[in-house]
Computed example of a mutant assay.
Amino acid sequence: MESITMIVALLVPNFLMGIGITAAVIMLLTIAAGLYRQLAYLPKFFWQYPMSYISFTAWAVQGQYKNDVIGLEFEPWVPGQPKLRGERILETDLGVNSNHSKWWDLTALFFIFSCHRVVFFMVLKYKDRAVLLLHRLFSKQSFEPLRKTPSDSFRREKYTSSKRHQPLHPLSSQEGLASPLP
């Protein structure tokens, strides 16, 4: 979460916008974790495939579930039935795939953390260059129509001099000073 917060803080202009965008990004990543609804019940196109793999919360929750439940036996819901194994509870009740171990989940978390840090470094290093490039691009696009059809303010004669840079006249030719000095 810290890495995501730092990336968003670099990209947004003020504090309040940063809080809102960070909360939204972290909530999107938390939805795919299987805390609120099992991953099998979420739409496959967006939530199951890309979001569940890039969500650090999904990998952390799956690793925690595996750490807490694998190897344990639980009392059945109905007395007299056989005890429930932790692996079965993971797959049926929690919707967690137990094909890989908790160490794989921890490795995925470390990889996601490293990727977030690399993205943070890239944003930190190239943000100013990208902003300058975008300003240059947008200024070219906004002045292009003006160059094609000049407005009245741009229709000046090419060789007229401004009033500020007129040749100097002697004091006697200026208004109010035409009379000789006493």
Rank of each mutant, 00 (worst) to 15 (best):
E2Y: 02
I4W: 05
T5N: 08
I7K: 05
I7P: 00
V8G: 02
A9K: 15
L11G: 01
V12K: 06
V12M: 13
P13A: 06
N14F: 15
F15L: 11
M17G: 07
G20C: 06
T22M: 04
A23D: 08
A24G: 03
A24Y: 12
V25P: 00
L29E: 12
T30Y: 01
A33K: 00
G34A: 05
G34F: 05
G34I: 08
L35R: 01
L35K: 01
Q38T: 07
Q38V: 01
Q38G: 11
Y41I: 01
Y41F: 09
P43Y: 13
W47M: 14
Q48M: 13
Y49G: 00
P50E: 14
P50I: 10
Y53E: 15
I54G: 07
I54C: 11
I54S: 08
F56K: 02
F56A: 07
T57F: 13
T57P: 00
A58G: 01
V61Q: 03
V61P: 03
Q62A: 09
Q62R: 14
G63D: 08
G63S: 09
Y65A: 08
K66C: 06
I70E: 14
L72P: 00
E73W: 08
P79T: 04
G80A: 06
G80L: 02
P82T: 03
L84Y: 03
E87L: 04
E87V: 09
L90C: 12
L90R: 01
T92V: 10
D93E: 04
V96S: 00
S98D: 15
N99F: 12
N99C: 05
H100W: 10
S101T: 15
S101P: 10
W103P: 04
A108M: 15
F111A: 15
F111L: 14
F113H: 10
F113C: 13
S114F: 11
S114W: 07
R117A: 12
V118Q: 07
F120W: 12
M122C: 07
M122E: 06
V123D: 07
L124V: 00
K127L: 04
R129W: 14
R129F: 13
A130S: 07
V131K: 06
V131W: 03
L134G: 03
R136S: 14
L137I: 09
F138G: 03
S139I: 06
Q141I: 10
Q141A: 11
S142Q: 07
E144Y: 15
P145S: 04
L146W: 08
K148A: 09
K148I: 06
K148E: 10
T149E: 11
P150I: 08
P150K: 13
D152I: 00
D152G: 03
S153K: 05
S162V: 06
S162P: 02
K163D: 15
H165C: 00
Q166S: 06
Q166M: 12
Q166C: 04
P170R: 05
S172D: 05
S173K: 05
Q174N: 10
Q174T: 11
G176F: 11
P180Q: 09
L181E: 14
L181H: 10
P182G: 14
P182R: 13
